[in-house]
Design a protein around this nucleic acid. Structure first.
Length: 218
DNA sequence: GCGACAG
DNA sequence: ATCTTGTCGC
């Protein structure tokens, strides 16, 4: 199943108008989402931790068939489903979600973090390891057309481009991400990525059941 | 036409 | 993202 680029673009352009910029409510629980692949199988992981002590609040996984290819600026059409399926299994719902990828620092102001935030109608923050769109001016990324600030560069084991997904403010997003920097990684995202790697090994051993069945977490 | 291009 | 182990350096 390829990917109808024209249709996908229209979806992004329309939903981009639903992105909301609001102060981030008090965060008690924060979650990190990530997706890994083994052939055409997508392995999604969601890890929720308590802001207070970073203790594990909950975790969930998803195992689905990957059907959409990766096309720059359309990452959500490939990874949103694996992420959502894992997220929905979380019993401890987070106050905010961290996503691997950009939020509004996107050509159409609708990266995967924004897509998730609009779909769930809750706070999301995009954290990417490299730039996708915009011009880097010091520790900020601005839109070359409007000059608007789209993201801020945060240092945590290398450059991290932090942008609002939805239902958050850039300053609040940056503050939260900086607070979660541990050992050169953003804790919740590192935890989700680690879980993803454990899933890959389990999957290769045939120790993971295909989604709709059991607790696909190793 | 050429270069850029999250994961 | 994924293909892939050990090795040099602090």
């Amino acid at each position: 199943m390829p990917l109808n680029i024209e249709a996908a673009r229209r979806v992004q352009e329309r939903l981009a108008g639903r992105v909301v910029f609001l102060p981030l409510p008090p965060v008690e629980i924060v979650a990190g989402l990530d997706v890994a692949y083994v052939g055409d199988t997508a392995l999604g992981a969601a890890v929720a931790v308590r802001m207070a002590d970073l203790s594990l609040a909950d975790r969930a996984c998803s195992v689905t068939k990957s059907v959409v290819p990766y096309v720059p600026t359309f990452l959500a059409f490939r990874e949103l489903t694996p992420m959502l399926r894992a997220y929905m299994k979380l019993r401890a719902k987070p106050d905010v979600i961290l996503v691997d990828g950009h939020g509004v620092a996107h050509p159409r102001r609708f990266g995967i973090a924004s897509h998730l935030g609009v779909v769930l109608g809750k706070p999301t923050i995009g954290v990417a390891k490299s730039r996708l769109y915009g011009v880097e001016k010091g520790d900020v990324v601005v839109d070359p057309e409007t000059g608007e600030v789209l993201a801020k560069v945060v240092n945590c084991g290398g450059k991290r481009y932090v942008s609002v997904g939805s239902h958050a403010t850039l300053s609040d997003a940056v503050r939260l991400v900086e607070d979660l920097c541990r050992g050169g990684d953003i804790y919740p995202l590192k935890a989700a990525h680690d879980l993803t790697q454990v899933m890959k090994k389990a999957w290769r051993r045939g120790a993971l059941s295909h989604d709709e069945h059991g607790d696909s977490c190793p």
